[in-house]
Amino acid sequence: MSDTDMKVIKTSDLDLAFREEIMKEHGAEKLSMCFNCTGCTAGCTMAEHEPNYNIRQLLRMANLGMREELLNHPYLWNCTTCYKCQERCPQGVHNVDILLKIRTMAVHSGIMLDKHRKVAQLMANTGHAVPINDDNKEKRKKLGMGELPETVHKYPDALEEVHKIVRITGFDKLTEAQS
């Protein structure tokens, strides 16, 4: 959706509790202070390369209470979290932290990209988002290093701690692949 796509928004469809829910998060209190100046979007490196991505618009939708549209928004996951816009916001709105909170709400409503599920499961299983492979075991040996780094890769008890933590928090279930 770009700024120029016009769509009628019915106030009866809006969910104002959504905004309150976001603002409860520590650091997200200033959401309602966004005065829609577009300073964030104007300097956004992602927007330069993907003009459909517009953080100002996402925050506007949050303020209006457009829960469903926002949680399912096709560009919700385009922010690289470079934090340039948060540093520049004249209102001191922690816009990136707010966006991360909205992403969390999406994931907890069962809306998650398949590729993100995969990397989450990889981390939950191996303790690394990017685990070792044969090629790099070779590189390590060639450099005179141990084949495995001194991480969870080498210490099964430590990996068990990671497994236990993701079970307790429910992260393993939350990010499970969907049939």
């Binding site: 993100h116 303790g127 690394h128 990017v130 008890d157």
Partner: peptide, 11 residues
């Protein structure tokens, strides 16, 4: 010893 993924901040 036994550290894991940080885990990555954005994701």
């Amino acid at each position: 010893k036994g550290a894991s993924c940080c885990p990555a901040p954005g994701v």
